[in-house]
């Protein structure tokens, strides 16, 4: 078995990955004594209060802008950000930058996913090889991949390729480690069952190991969806010819607070959409997860 330290990074990512998958109605021990709502109340009250919090927050924000408690140069009121979002979306440059950043993210992500899953399968098939190579995998997962940005720009140029490279690098290891981890954690008795049926390696892989590992693989894929976008943005921060990250830096230095915040919201939305797509695919593919 690998050392504890080697396994740790995935534990985190899987913990994060499943953080929002809380079964409704389960009452964890520490919360036994807390005032609970019955399911009906819960269904209506909670979203309404949640929404109420948001509205109150936006109102307070607007009010403090109007009372000049916050400088509009630092944080413009929500209304002007909203108007600016409409302007930004209609601006002639927007589509090009959006396409650039999205392409970098998706291409880097998909490459990382394919290569990492393939390599994960290879490494867990050949255990000896895995033992030899795994220390490097752990090291590379722990060191901050964004430090490779300048090197990647030297290698791949200031264009789209270096950002794809960074998106790839930053999202690769999470998927790799999760894939290996998932294949490692196939229950021993299930494997014994397949052996008792004289199943071939191929059958065991297809009928048992692969589906059993999928929840882990997808936990990795979810985390790395966000990471890929980060990679693309960081790459664009440094040097680039196009992209939302570059535009963000430009607006920041021009002190266009409205536009900066509008872009931030749009980038956030892009992140949510990308994550949402992966989460959706996850739910479709690994439908049996509790």
């Amino acid at each position: 078995m690998a050392g504890v330290s080697a396994v740790d990074p995935t534990v985190e990512s899987s913990i994060e990955g499943q953080a929002n998958a809380r079964a409704p109605g389960t009452v964890p021990g520490s919360n036994d004594d807390k005032p609970g709502l019955d399911p009906l109340q819960r269904r209506w009250v909670e979203p309404i209060v949640s929404l109420g919090v948001l509205i109150t927050f936006l109102l307070a924000w607007t009010l403090s802008s109007q009372l000049r408690l916050i400088s509009p140069l630092v944080l413009p009121p929500p209304a002007s950000i909203a108007t600016e979002i409409m302007d930004v979306v209609r601006a002639p440059w927007f589509l090009g930058d959006l396409v650039a950043t999205t392409t970098e993210t998706i291409v880097g992500y998909l490459l990382a996913a394919v290569v990492a899953i393939f390599l994960g399968v290879v490494l867990s098939t050949f255990r000896r090889l895995r033992r030899i190579v795994y220390p490097y995998v752990v090291v590379f997962q722990v060191i901050p991949s964004v430090a490779l940005a300048p090197v990647l720009i030297i290698w791949l140029g200031p264009g789209i390729s270096s950002k794809i490279g960074l998106a790839f690098t930053i999202s690769f290891f999470v998927v790799l480690v999760n894939t290996i981890e998932g294949l490692e954690r196939v229950p021993a008795n299930s494997l014994r069952l397949m052996t008792s049926l004289a199943a071939s390696r191929r059958q065991t892989f297809l009928m048992l190991s692969l589906p059993a590992a999928l929840p882990y693989v997808f936990a990795g894929l979810r985390t790395s969806a966000t990471l890929a976008l980060i990679g693309a943005l960081v790459g664009e921060f440094i040097t680039s010819t196009a992209g939302l990250g570059r535009r963000l830096v430009e607006f920041s230095f021009a002190m266009k607070a409205d536009s900066v915040w509008a872009l931030l919201v749009l980038i956030g939305a892009l992140g949510m959409v990308l994550y949402g797509i992966v989460a959706l695919i996850d739910r479709r593919v690994v439908w049996w997860r509790a």
């Binding site: 229950p187 008795n189 014994r192 049926l197 009928m207 059993a212 049996w288």
Partner: peptide
């Protein structure tokens, strides 16, 4: 060998197969 079936302490049903498909696992293998 195929003529020897084994049952474990844990049922080891596959979560991605329904009851019928789980029963048919040896047939598939």
């Amino acid at each position: 060998r195929r003529s020897v079936g084994v049952m474990f302490q844990t049922p080891e049903l596959f979560r991605w197969r329904n009851v019928l498909e789980n029963v048919l696992l040896p047939v598939d293998v």
